[in-house]
Amino acid sequence: MIRTLDLLIRREAAIERRTLGWLASMGLLGVLGVIVLGLGFSPEPSGDVKSALSVAGLWLVFLFAGSVGMSRTFAQERESGALDGVMLLPIDPALLYLAKVMTGMVSLLLALAGMAAAAHIFMHLEVALVFGRLLPLFALAALGYVAAGTVIAAMTSSLRGRDALLAIALFPIVVPLFVLATSASRDVLLGTSLEAVWEELIMLAAFDALYLALGMLSFGKVLEA
């Protein structure tokens, strides 16, 4: 099982390397979003207001950029028939799902790091300085987002107007994650320690576990349909 998972992760990583599906779309869109956000902050707000607005804006950009990345990756695989080929193999679809979630999460975290750097440079937001403390938060939010998004993207990738549908279907479902992540990351940016947002981290982990369990159970059925 581990060997199969390893091979599937390598396959996903190879697709990502060749097409730059997640990173190119998300990274670029994310940085552009941060720049637009920075341009909107004129005159620049100060102190707590700036942190609260910036964090909300960053998560919003992350939400949209992530959905574009997910949609693109699935669309490429569907159009080339690669997904049908993989489905013919005698492997558990749950493993394919886990491989997609893991690679998606790494790509999303890399894109987030890029957005944090852009926010540091263009918005003078000290995200980069507390990035270590924000990392567990980012990782848990990204995991839940990709876990839910992979199933919904698999659904919508074969439909007309898939990009809009993915956003419409995915955003209400992942709201619990973003409510928790936004409030916790704002607190961390304002100087709170990670221990103080422990409760939010536990709840994020619980939501992640729920999305992952649902995804592992339903991913195969969605691809078969």
Binding site: A148, V151, I152, M155, L159, P172, L210, Y211, S218, V222
Partner: peptide, 25 residues
Amino acid sequence: IRGAVEDERKKRMFSAVYGLATVPL
């Protein structure tokens, strides 16, 4: 989502999965 899917079997499957995905809400 249901309105966007034409195939009936797919429509039912997607509805069931999406219905389950709303449970964390």
